[in-house]
Each structure stands twice: as C-alpha cells, then as structure tokens.
Design a protein around this nucleic acid. Structure first.
Length: 290
DNA sequence: CAATCGTGGCA
DNA sequence: TTGCCAAGATT
C-alpha cells in the first residue's frame, strides 16, 4: 500500500480528536516541551499534567531551574517515578545555560547531547518544538506501525532497522507536515490504537490496517518479561525517597530505618541513592535531598 | 542486548 | 486481586 494512504486519514483524525495539552499550545515554549518529554518518559499524561504546570510556573526558563539545587528538582518531581529524570532535567538546564546561551537547542545533534535526552526525546523536541523533520519513534508509533504495516499486535522489544526504515519512508517531505504527522501518529496510538483493547471501530485507518484485516491475531512472540515489584530495590528506593521528599529538612537514619526492612537491603539502596545523587549524606546518621 | 530504574490506575 | 501498562534513557 502506498505510504501516502495513511497520511490524510490520520492527519484529519488528529485535527478532529487531538487533546488540548499545555505543551502543545502555540504559546508553549521549547522548554515546556522539553520538560514535558522528560516527564512523559514511561509516565501517563494524566499524572504529568499537574507537575508540569507547577514546574513551568516555578521555573519558566532553563536558567531558573539551573539556579536551584538539584534537590529542589527532585522534591518538585513528586511521585512521578524514576526520580533520576529530575536530576537529568536539572542537568539539561545547566547544560543549556552553559553551552546554549540559555535557549533550548533546536538541532537533534545538540539535543541528544543533553542529559536524559535519547533518540526519541531529541527527535520529539526538534519536531514538536521547532517543526523539524525527524522520525519520532515512541512506543505508540511503534505499535501503530506494527499493526498497520506489519500486521502484528505488538512491536518487538527493541527498534529494528526495518522498523526505522518503514517510519522513515512514511515521513512526509515537508517539515511542518512531518512534525504534525509525528504527533498525530503518536496520538492515534495513545487514544485509539492502544496496547490493550484497541478501538478499531474509531480508527481512521482500520480499513487498511494489516493487523485488523488479518483478524487481529494475538501476539505470537517471545514471552514479555513483567517487572517484579514487591521487595525489589526499586520499591525500597522509592520508600526511602518518599521519606526524604516528604521531610522539610534532613532526616535521621531512624526515619529511614522505619521505612524499610531488611536492613541490608535498606543500607545498600541508601548507598545507591547517594551514589546516584538522589540523596546526600550530610552528617553522621543524617540524610537529605541533595 | 538485557537489566535497571518508580508509581499508580485500571481491566 | 493482580498483572499490565504509561511520550525511554542509561549502562
């Protein structure tokens, strides 16, 4: 099927159904877009919205954030999860001030040099904030392409060469159209072509979707590993970080001891948090946000 | 390439 | 109730 057959239905659908998100508004700054992209990594939109608003009100520019201690970023990150992203965003702000005159760079090559910015985020910011032409391959896009083009329910674990070539081939020539196409496919994946219970009845390309035309065959690949949680270091780290976040000042070791057992794991995780820069050992038996 | 890294809502 | 899942990056 010609690539262009997807364009008009998806773009029209996006025009009619796109969500009104703060980082998509015309007045949204590139900094707002960058902050949103870091927060949205593995985190649902609904949970990001209030934190993003608070961050932009408190730190309207990269320089505002860069002037703060990293601990303030970690505290304001709240319960979004993966708090190292807060450190990376702070580090990105520092780098933007030091190396880019305080302005979020518009080039992919500069963006991907920032902490916490990988291929997806660099392409997304260049595309959404600056209207550049880039392949934006996130989990939503990958799922839409897997279904419509490959005829399979879910994309592979990692991005394949063929997958990237397919996405490149679908990218409109005009940069502005390419940028809209990128966000439109993502939105389709987020709202209609969802991982579970896709709404094929509402899909603008259902009539040419290889997966639907094949009868929506169930996933038939290697077993997908589900992440353990109870009793893991991640849960332990989360508990310790919650104690540090929710305290106004430094906390005594006893407060951390009450948050987790066994001791050996707690000690190891606390050392890991200090090593990661998420916590500071400010005095004997006293810890705080950095 | 695979493991690691939080959190909470929902089917 | 519990497994699945949400705009990935880093090592």
């Amino acid at each position: 099927m010609p690539a262009s057959e997807l364009h008009t239905p998806v773009l029209d659908w996006y025009d009619a159904h796109q969500r009104d998100l703060p980082w998509r508004r015309p007045e949204a700054s590139p900094w707002s877009v960058l902050v949103s992209e870091l927060m949205l990594q593995q985190t649902p939109v609904a949970r990001v919205l209030p934190v993003h608003q608070a961050w932009l009100e408190r730190w309207p520019t990269p320089a505002d954030l860069a002037a703060e201690p990293t601990g303030e970023a970690v505290r304001a990150w709240g319960r979004l999860g993966y708090p190292r992203r807060a450190l990376r965003l702070h580090g990105a702000a520092v780098a933007i001030v030091a190396e880019h005159g305080g302005e979020v760079p518009s080039e992919y090559a500069d963006l991907i040099g920032l902490p916490g910015v990988g291929d997806y985020t660099a392409a997304a910011v260049a595309s959404f904030a600056f209207g550049r032409r880039h392949v934006v391959l996130d989990t939503n896009v990958r799922r839409v392409l897997a279904r419509t083009r490959q005829g399979v329910e879910l994309a592979s674990t990692s991005v394949t060469r063929a997958e990237r070539e397919t996405a490149t081939g679908l990218l409109p020539d005009d940069p502005a159209t390419a940028a809209t196409w990128a966000v439109a496919v993502m939105e389709l994946g987020a709202l209609v072509c969802t991982a579970s219970s896709p709404r094929c009845g509402e899909c603008p390309v259902a009539d040419l979707c290889a997966w639907r035309l094949a009868g929506r065959p169930a996933y038939d690949g290697p077993p997908r590993r589900t992440q353990a949680w109870a009793g893991t270091d991640r849960q332990c780290r989360g508990r310790l970080m919650a104690v540090l976040r929710e305290s106004e000042g430094p906390v005594h070791r006893s407060a951390l001891e009450a948050a987790w057992s066994p001791e050996s794991q707690r000690v190891r995780c606390l050392a890991g948090l200090v090593e990661d820069g998420l916590a500071a050992h400010v005095a004997p038996d006293v810890y705080a946000l950095p």
